[in-house]
Amino acid sequence: MSAKHAVHLDGIAALAERYEVFLLDQFGVLHGGQQPYPGAVEALSALKRAGKTVALISNSGKRAEPNERRLLKLGFEAGSWDHFVSSGEVAWRIFRNMADSGALRAGTRCLLISRDEDRSAIEGLPLVLTERGDDADLVLIAASEGDRYDLDHYRRLLGPAAARKVPCFCTNPDRIMLTAVGPGFGAGEIADLYEQLGGSVTRIGKPYPAIYEAALALAGHPALSDVICVGDSVEHDIAGGNAAGVSTALVMTGILADRSDLTGLFADFGAWPDYTLGAFRWR
């Protein structure tokens, strides 16, 4: 389908008449990191009252539980979603399976790039934290502090590991993040830098398949025709939904709040939504 065929809707009530399973992004759709968007709390609760299965699917390097705590703190109603699938949670389970099989040895030195000193990405894993790139066995990019540091900071930190070809995993492929002081560079940009420095990166999260497979499994393997993915990123939410074979809706908040040249954006990523919404609200 082409971008010109995307149907514009005033709210998600029309989608609730058509779809049974909703895969919802959080940042840029439900909230901007500091507070919910107008109408988002009510719309999320209305979906559950309508009997829909709601899975929040997020490129957050944090595990599911701290993400859910944040939503409750922001004022979202407990029980207004069924599942929370973060890229950090998916990655943690992959690492856990690797440890159980012996593919990840105990005592592996991990250079963790996170935010707010969050360690949930590695809790319970047989990893030993290091703050140096020259003795790391593994690099895990879970988040960005691009509002505190510039890319040169990360270049100095990661350069020695990249030069040694240390394997790197990025559990938040977003190149742009929303902060209290405006958009900043995300963990995906740091992963790009690691590759530019000579390293290789395995990315976990949208638009890559593993996070959709996990979400659809939790939702009971529904018919793909009953599923819609809602997000604010063409690169991640729309492209990922297209690849997963589900319908998609693009919300014009978050990183797209000031964008008008959407046709070019769709063409750049080869991804087109079925619907567009001004914001995530019921009507």
Rank of each mutant, 00 (worst) to 15 (best):
N59D: 05
V251Y: 11
D137E: 14
S144W: 14
D147R: 07
Q34C: 03
G124M: 13
T263E: 15
T53V: 11
R203W: 11
R63C: 00
F280C: 02
G61L: 00
R115K: 15
T276N: 10
T179S: 15
G11P: 08
E131S: 15
A217G: 14
N242T: 10
C168H: 03
I204S: 06
Q26I: 01
R63T: 09
L216A: 08
I122M: 05
V21R: 01
G186C: 11
L178D: 03
F185P: 00
T202M: 15
P38Y: 10
G88M: 03
G205E: 00
A106N: 14
L158G: 07
L151N: 01
L178K: 04
A13L: 02
K73T: 07
A279Q: 09
L47F: 07
V181I: 15
Y19M: 07
R69S: 08
Y154G: 10
L216S: 10
V201I: 09
L72S: 05
S87V: 01
A136G: 04
G51L: 03
V230N: 10
A3I: 12
G133K: 09
D152F: 15
R281F: 06
G11D: 04
K4P: 06
D82V: 03
R115E: 14
E235R: 12
E42Y: 03
S260C: 13
E17A: 14
Y208Q: 09
L56Y: 02
V166E: 03
K165I: 07
L72H: 08
G182D: 10
S80C: 02
G205V: 03
S200G: 13
Y275G: 00
G270K: 11
W81Y: 06
F185S: 02
G102D: 08
R164D: 08
N67E: 11
I57S: 01
G245I: 07
G51C: 05
C170W: 06
L197G: 11
G51V: 06
P207Q: 12
L47A: 01
T108F: 07
S200L: 13
A244R: 00
G184A: 15
D134V: 08
K4Q: 15
A55K: 04
G28K: 04
D232G: 04
S87C: 00
R70P: 01
G241R: 00
H31I: 05
V21K: 00
A187T: 10
P167W: 10
A142T: 07
G79W: 01
L216E: 06
F22M: 09
L125F: 12
P209L: 12
A43E: 04
I228F: 15
E89Q: 14
M1V: 08
A43T: 05
N242W: 05
A13W: 01
V139F: 13
L250W: 13
L178F: 11
T248A: 14
K48N: 11
R148A: 11
L218S: 02
P167I: 02
V166I: 13
A249I: 04
A6V: 05
L216F: 12
A14L: 09
N242M: 13
N67H: 05
L127M: 14
A243M: 07
A40F: 01
R70T: 00
E68I: 04
A64L: 04
D137F: 12
P167S: 14
